[in-house]
Amino acid sequence: MLREYTKVFASVVGSQDRTRPVWVIDGYAGAGAYEEPDPEGAHPDGSPLIVLKMAEEFKSRQVIKSIFIESDTSAVEALDKNVTPFRDRGLSASILNGTVEEQMPSAWSAVGTNPVVTFLDPFGVAMRRETMTRLLLSRTRDLPPSEVLLNINLEAVWRIGGNLELSAGRVVPCKGQERGVERVDRFFGGTAWRQTFHDMRHEHGSAAQAAEHVIAVYRDQIRQDTGYDSMSIPVRRRPHHEPLFLLTLFFRHPVGGYKFADAACRATRKWRETYRKQELEEFLGRQRQESLFGDDFEMENAAKEGARQEQELDAQWVQNICDNIRNLGAHRLDVARDVSLILGHTLGLAGERHIRKAWDQLAEDGYLRPRDTSKKMHRSAMERA
């Protein structure tokens, strides 16, 4: 998702003025690559290398500058080694040693009024709300966009929320759990989330649902404070697992949300492909001694089965979008502004090509007017026939 959306952001914003650099800030950069290698012996890219490899693709048409913030000194040393080859090839990659609260003002000063997307993937809930509202989302509409991609740790919220109790009519931390709860207080900007979490958990019996509700309230409060809308994509370890994170984009212009939803579609498809590959490798590892046909045969069959599953999902999601549009019953839907309503529960799974197919299908059925194929989808509006 990080790669897909920063690539889109650089393409869209950079095309408006190629003389301006486009900035990417990574607030919790780490070492740049994971220390533990994958089964093939490679060290998987961390967010800094994902950003720099994306920036390298743009080098001939757009200047992309990066700032990486990391508080751990040993991680900074490893990060410097990991980004040096990119610097040697002419890319801009600055490293700031310190916390987000300490170093973000310096990063913001370097960015100036240029367009910027800030990626924040804190460990747990480590960032103050004021960093969002008073700095990162403080630009007025007449300035180039500043968007924030925040990975909200849903699991941390429900885990720490489980350390709350009702005492003398107030929701307070359990004894010994004060520090963890107070970190969440700073993230949400006060203690009101405690009562909300307690009430929702009591009503639904689910800490996960209570956490999702608390985060929805947080997003709405950010919108009221700053004017920025937001869109969340659930992040899971496996397709049928409960989400552990909500990767959330804060944006001003509806096209940002639309492009984010489409980027999520591409990213989650790649994720499913990776997941299938991992399952196949695990299967082959277990069955290698018993297989009559060999790995090549199994891999070819798996590729065919994966393609068949993707076709089924595509058809299912197009039908879901058709049903969403019919159920909305609106006479007009702005594709960019109303993309969350159009996609419904397929948000994060389906994207532009599915919306296009659904529109064409509904036009053929006589429910919608045919789309103007000369216009880009994010500039189009669906109208009832």
Rank of each mutant, 00 (worst) to 15 (best):
E279D: 10
A303S: 12
S15A: 15
T373I: 07
D365S: 01
R20S: 12
L249E: 07
E281T: 13
F119Q: 02
G90S: 02
K259T: 06
V171C: 05
L96V: 02
A93P: 06
M231Y: 00
V148G: 03
A192R: 13
R286I: 09
V117W: 08
D80S: 10
D338N: 15
G257N: 07
A208F: 12
F297E: 10
D225P: 07
L280K: 09
L96Y: 01
T274C: 04
P39K: 07
R18S: 12
R170S: 13
H202W: 15
D262T: 06
Q195L: 15
P144L: 07
I325Y: 00
N97T: 14
R18C: 05
F251R: 00
V157R: 14
S92K: 14
A302N: 12
A363I: 00
C265F: 08
E242G: 10
S146T: 08
I321F: 00
E4C: 09
L347Q: 15
Y258I: 03
R183N: 14
G348Y: 07
F68Q: 05
G256I: 11
G30N: 06
N97A: 13
V125W: 09
Q316I: 03
R332E: 03
H345K: 15
E57A: 06
W108M: 13
V157I: 15
Q278K: 15
P239S: 14
G329W: 00
N163Y: 15
S167I: 04
R332F: 02
G14A: 01
P370K: 01
H198D: 11
V51A: 14
P37H: 09
T226R: 08
P243D: 10
G162H: 15
E70W: 09
M231G: 01
L343P: 05
S15H: 09
G27V: 03
Y218V: 02
T191K: 10
N114H: 11
K277F: 07
A208S: 14
A267E: 12
Q287H: 08
L349P: 01
F297S: 03
F293I: 06
Y34T: 07
N327F: 01
T226W: 04
W158N: 09
G30P: 06
A78R: 15
A315Y: 00
W158E: 15
D229A: 11
L249P: 02
L280Y: 07
